[in-house]
């Protein structure tokens, strides 16, 4: 394998490795007819369709968002949504909302546990839903404090904002599943 070892090329490797933070004033996000997001940076760079990926979807969902082209290569990162104008921000949030779907569980109708699986019937911010969660395997994750992320057997994600206060009948059961 031919490898790059010269100090000069090493420096260029470093440059390649720098994260490119996109300047809000140069970025122009637009919604395409198909409902996708397009991006142009300055005069030269044009992307028909970009995807947004959160680097910290749980701990800091509105900062450090990776912007990727349709091939999945990173174009650059947005440091914070708050630095964009309201209209662009709404556009970005809409796109993120499409990609990240984490309904918040508002009311627990019932949870039954049997043989390593728990069967949930809940009302969420997106409507009523039944799902099954496998015990263990990091399927209930405490996100600092009392916030809990629930991942069901199909990989769907739900959020409980405060498991201790959502339903006194089930808070102990949820705690045992954590």
């Amino acid at each position: 394998m031919d490898r790059i070892t010269h100090p000069a090329t090493r420096r260029s490797l470093d440059e390649y490795a720098q994260i490119r933070y996109l300047d809000p004033s140069e970025c122009c996000f637009k919604k395409t007819e198909g409902g996708f997001l397009s991006l142009s940076i300055g005069e030269k760079e044009q992307y028909e369709r970009v995807d947004l990926v959160r680097a910290f979807p749980l701990s800091d969902s509105d900062s450090y968002i990776s912007v990727r082209d349709s091939e999945g290569n990173e174009i650059g990162m947005l440091e914070s949504l708050s630095r964009f104008s309201d209209s662009t921000r709404r556009l970005l949030e809409e796109e993120l909302g499409r990609r990240y779907f984490t309904p918040v569980i508002e009311k627990i109708r019932s949870i039954e546990e049997e043989f390593g699986y728990s069967y949930w019937d809940v009302d969420t911010s997106a409507g009523q839903r039944r799902f099954t969660v496998r015990r263990g395997h990091n399927n209930l994750v405490q996100l600092g404090g009392r916030r809990v992320l629930v991942i069901d057997v199909d990989g769907n994600r739900f959020e409980i904002e405060d498991y201790t206060s959502i339903d006194s009948r089930y808070s102990r059961l949820i705690e045992s599943l954590l």
Binding site: A55, S59, S66, G72
Partner: peptide, 13 residues
Amino acid sequence: AHDFIAEFPEAYD
């Protein structure tokens, strides 16, 4: 490592 990390649903989280 950034690229493969960003591929995970929860990325750095």
